[in-house]
């Protein structure tokens, strides 16, 4: 993995930096990548196999946008530090909670609630407040400027 982290191979870097979006949707896409990177299709496929095996590449595919179906919100709580594991388990026990992180702040537990509609999201937040005895901050998305579009790693 260190060889990946510290990869100074310029073709690896360009492959990972330049094709996080705008992958060519043509019959022989890897040949197009090879042409742009001054390589061969077989070499590009070998690199992708190696980078995938090393864990650096999750897949070549689509990232889907939020809010296409259902409703969701980002929620936060101030959990007494000694109680974090118990509270986090309570929160994570809700099947509508699909993302649950501890962060360094007075508001130290952050989670996403997703459900079929907004009423169900609000109901789940109320259930979480009841189960934990802690108030929940409800921060629904108002506008996305940049949602998982990838970002340059080296440049």
């Amino acid at each position: 993995m260190d060889s990946i982290r510290d990869s100074s191979d310029p073709t690896d870097r360009r492959l990972l930096d330049e094709f996080q979006r705008g992958f060519p949707l043509i019959p022989r896409p890897f040949a197009e990548l090879a042409a742009r990177l001054g390589s061969t299709p077989a070499d590009i496929l070998d690199r992708l196999r190696r980078l995938t095996a090393a864990g650096a590449v999750a897949r070549v595919g689509a990232a889907f946008r939020p809010h296409r179906v259902g409703a969701s919100t980002l929620a936060a709580m101030a959990v007494p530090p000694g109680d974090m594991v118990r509270i986090a388990a309570l929160v994570g026990g809700f099947e509508e909670v699909n993302h649950n992180y501890e962060r360094e702040h007075r508001l130290n537990l952050w989670f996403v609630v997703t459900a079929a509609d907004g009423a169900r999201v609000r109901a789940v937040l109320a259930e979480i407040e009841a189960a934990t005895g802690l108030p929940v901050l409800d921060l629904p998305l108002e506008r996305g400027y940049h949602l998982d579009l990838g970002f340059p790693l080296w440049t």
Binding site: M1, I4, R5, D6, L15, L16, F19, Q20, R21, G22, F23, L25, I26, P27, L48, A54, G55, A56, V57, A58, R59, V60, G61, A62, A63, F64, R65, R68, L147, D148, L149, G150, L153
Partner: peptide, 30 residues
């Protein structure tokens, strides 16, 4: 093949997919 390409293009153009490309694992890259 053309149908698959058209369907993926449609995902991106309608905004259902935010992007189509190499999905990197940032943690694995350090």
């Amino acid at each position: 093949e053309a149908g698959v390409i058209a369907a993926i293009r449609d995902l991106v153009e309608t905004g259902a997919a935010s992007r189509f490309g190499i999905i990197v694992d940032h943690a694995a890259l350090g």
